[in-house]
Design a binder for these strands. Structure first.
Lengths: 144, 144
DNA sequence: TTCAGTGCAAAGCGTTTGCAGGGTG
DNA sequence: CACCCTGCAAACGCTTTGCACTGAA
């Protein structure tokens, strides 16, 4: 996918820099990562990368369609590569386990809203709730 | 619903204060509001309420099950009263219009995840995408 | 009278921005 | 060699926290 990177940047008159390559690579390798985690990963190989560069780069990569983000917690967003199959994130609010589902699970929802002309951004969807394991063991409480 | 307030607070050994009453009332009247909007609304009637009290109170009210929150933007969360019917929020990323849908639209999703023992928190769901009006008029771009 | 709740101020976390120097194309 | 990109440091928006005082029960 890093091949796309050079091409897509060029299309927009943007430049290919080592930082951009490393950041995209980090997102691909981590599969799901916050800006902070991306920064840490990049720094584990090269020492000098700045947090603001990570933010600016993730923004660029998202505009180029190479990465996407969702909100899997009330804190920082999570980025993932678009080279993965599109998927819906399902998050257990109790144990914080994140599971990916095939977009088929939301097909009826997409269809229902589509009837009103609304186009759902499936990749951004995060469904919160309580997973089977937690529901089994847990007292009825505790938030995100 | 403010009757519930006194009762539920008492159950937990908590106290009924003017601030708590006003904050719950604000959420009910505004229907969808960020902590900041709640603060402004409360201050428009009484002058002295502190932001940290709003945050602390919204947390308490949510634990008591009197209010709920969702994330309708990448910024502050939105609170609403649980005295409204449960609904799913659908947000246009372009014009930021928020529309509420009957939970029926996600019934198939709830059923599909339910098959795996996952209990979906329907009230917390926010579906992002592009509404009919924007899709009609807009160039294919622009983020949240 | 007790202890939960409040206001205030400071700190915290994640993110953004202005600017000057650096490196890509 | 133009101009995009980066690092740095400061600022920012939202939220949380520590502490002493206040007031509900």
């Amino acid at each position: 996918m890093s091949d796309d990177l050079a091409a897509r940047l060029r299309e927009q008159g943007l430049r290919l820099t080592p930082q951009r390559r490393l950041i995209l690579q980090a997102v691909e390798e981590l599969r799901h990562a916050t800006p902070d985690e991306v920064l840490a990963h990049v720094r584990s190989r090269v020492s000098s990368v700045n947090a603001s560069t990570v933010y600016r780069t993730l923004e660029v990569l998202e505009e180029l369609g190479l990465v996407r983000h969702t909100h899997l917690s009330d804190r920082a967003p999570t980025y993932h590569s678009t080279s993965e199959h599109e998927h819906v994130h399902v998050v257990c609010r109790r144990c914080h386990v994140v599971r990916s589902y095939d977009p088929a699970v939301v097909a009826p929802l997409v269809a229902a809203l589509g009837a009103d002309g609304f186009v759902v951004d499936v990749g951004h969807l995060a469904v919160f709730g309580e997973c089977a394991d937690c529901a089994a063991q847990a007292p009825p409480d505790t938030p995100t």
